[in-house]
Design a protein around this nucleic acid. Structure first.
Lengths: 198, 198
DNA sequence: CCTCAGGTATACTGATCGGTAAACCTTCCT
DNA sequence: AGGAAGGTTTACCGATCAGTATACCTGAGG
């Protein structure tokens, strides 16, 4: 019986408040830097309750990442609902979603940050973070394939790098946000992969 | 008298071993997760000596990042020494440098990882990490300007995102490394910014 | 010869870490 | 009526955290 993430959608009221506090604190201050005592205090819950619901900090961390992953996937799925988009335009939709996402998440990619703090592949949170990248890579691949673009695997890999890069770059480079600028770059790459090209 | 990074090039023998051990441990396991006791033990030095040389863990962290920054800049400068390169080719040279760099550094960008763990802008290591990005951005900008490319600021921003993204993406996506794939993407973006284009 | 910088050794501080013990209080379901 | 689930309170555990105290050793330069 290994410790894995809980289902973030079926939680006791107390556990919800714990998860909400943990999400905020982990993202803002880092996972290792935030102790369980602080989380319990911040969520107005006893440490005992925290451990009754989650069993360990590891599991709480994994659940935090899983909940965040679900929110992000829903956000992208929502953006893909936009009507009247050509298959080619749909490839860059995740970048539009990213633009809104980054407004409320100025501290970079929570999954990259988590991987930085959890090098151990055995940690239940490690896999959740790795899966998030894999999912996005496959999404890009299928969007590129649907659009009939050349070398969809390579293109998807490049788009994934642009995506992660936009989240990682903190420099107030230009007046434009990284998400915007990177969206343009993605469009250029997509155009270069159009089958009509030489 | 604030605590800032030491000069990594003027260290006592003991301090050198401390810094070497700290560099390895911080990068492999994360900054917060590595304690000063472990560093002292790993470097075969007394904790007392560690504190006599560095004064605090904060300073040691900042020095670690500064030393790494210097190595990376030297590595890129070295790659730029390559003779017989056109100004246009020189723009993508950092990606060639990145390819070699990533062989020995599979745990992503040490500066992004550090920023994930050190959200406090007052931490002396925070600025060092932020400066690294700024330097690379300015390098790309000047290379793009020298090549006479259009909108060099935007292009540099995009190239920086590609660079950071390649370091962040961990997925064994294709048979090609992220650095290679991203190098191709950079070439496409550079070609699209050529002044001869419409 | 003497100083002094660099380093060693052991021991310690108060705080915080993740996690547990034991006992009790509600509320809801049967 | 009764029990289980969710939560509470206070207290505790051994380990580790960053950092300090004190005293001693060694080699090189004046």
């Amino acid at each position: 019986m290994k410790a894995t993430a809980l289902d973030p959608d079926t939680l006791t009221p107390g556990a919800r408040r714990v998860l909400d506090s943990a999400s905020e604190l982990f993202y803002e201050r880092g996972i290792t830097a935030v102790g369980v005592d602080l989380i319990a205090q911040h969520s107005g819950v006893t440490k005992r309750t925290l451990y009754n619901r989650f069993g360990s900090k590891e599991t709480l961390v994994a659940t935090y990442l899983l909940a965040r992953d679900r929110r992000w996937r829903a956000h992208v799925a929502d953006a893909l609902e936009t009507p009247d988009l050509s298959p080619g335009e749909r490839v860059t939709v995740p970048f539009r979603a990213l633009r809104e996402w980054m407004r409320g998440n100025p501290r970079g990619c929570a999954f990259i940050n988590a991987l930085a703090e959890l090098p151990d592949p055995e940690h239940p949170g490690h896999q959740v973070a790795a899966d998030q990248q894999q999912w996005l890579l496959e999404l890009f691949t299928s969007l590129a394939t649907d659009a009939g673009l050349r070398t969809p695997d390579d293109l998807a890999h490049q788009l994934l790098c642009l995506y992660e890069g936009a989240l990682a770059v903190q420099v107030p480079a230009t007046t434009r946000s990284s998400a915007e600028t990177v969206g343009d770059a993605a469009a250029v790459l997509v155009r270069a992969a159009a089958p009509s090209n030489p």
